[in-house]
């Protein structure tokens, strides 16, 4: 208990004093996970809409793979991305290993099935005739898709929350492809692991509290938008 209280106090001090490690790791976490979730949304929502609204051979297999992907172990994702980005790997020529883009790639792979899978179920929960009704009121296809997303925002925003929560808090993949390099690829989670390894539990606890606060703040903001105008 002392450790938690002490960590909380230290977290406040570190934030107020603008501790270099805290600021660096926090900003990098936000940058990496923010960009990764944005990419996952840009790909995952349209892909989810496609899976939910169209029928094609093998569709169920694709949905099954997306659902299975929602439980991908981050460390395994990290290993596969690392294997691709190593100098000897298929994409080694890009020179991305131990860089922010490498971390973003790994995090997109973790978040994408969550965003896609939630979008599929969000759209499928709507009345199937709703898309017809929207089109019959003169909407274009893209206006119809936008309206469907808006109608399904409860679950769609849950997808964004789940995706962001999953990647900002994971350590295995970013450690493996980012390397926790100071001032380059160190994020909150990898910094916590490093500090615990050094026995600096106080700062580790402080960073953990900052991580929790960030996750909560992001989730709360999305929840606020999600719950606006709900019917019940």
């Amino acid at each position: 208990m002392d450790l938690i209280v002490e960590g909380f106090k230290q977290a406040i001090i570190l934030i107020i004093t603008g501790d270099e490690l805290v600021v660096e790791a926090t900003l990098r976490s936000l940058e990496t996970s923010g960009l990764a979730v944005a990419v996952a949304i840009l790909i995952g929502i349209p892909f989810g809409l496609l899976l939910a609204l169209t029928r094609f051979p093998g569709r169920n297999i694709v949905i099954g793979m997306v659902n299975a992907g929602m439980g991908l172990p981050p460390v395994v994702v990290g290993l596969f991305v690392a294997a691709l980005l190593w100098r000897s790997g298929l994409l080694g020529f890009l020179g991305l290993m131990y860089t922010i883009p490498a971390m973003i790639i790994a995090q997109v792979i973790i978040a994408l099935p969550l965003v896609t899978g939630f979008t599929v179920s969000a759209i499928q929960q709507l009345n199937p005739k709703l898309k017809y009704q929207i089109l019959a009121l003169g909407a274009t296809r893209s206006q119809m898709l936008f309206t469907l997303i808006k109608e399904a925002r409860l679950t769609t925003l849950a997808a964004v929350m789940a995706g962001f929560g999953a990647i900002i808090s994971e350590v295995g993949a970013v450690m493996m492809v980012g390397g926790n390099i100071s001032r380059q690829t160190r994020v909150l989670t990898t910094a916590i692991v490093e500090l615990v390894g050094k026995g600096d539990f106080g700062r580790a606890m402080a960073l953990s509290i900052i991580l929790l606060t960030l996750t909560f703040a992001a989730t709360y903001t999305l929840t606020h938008y999600q719950q606006r105008g709900t019917r019940l």
Partner: peptide, 16 residues
Amino acid sequence: RRRLSMVFQDSLLLSG
């Protein structure tokens, strides 16, 4: 589609 409109059995109202 912009010259016609349709009403379904379910009212299919949007949120708002």
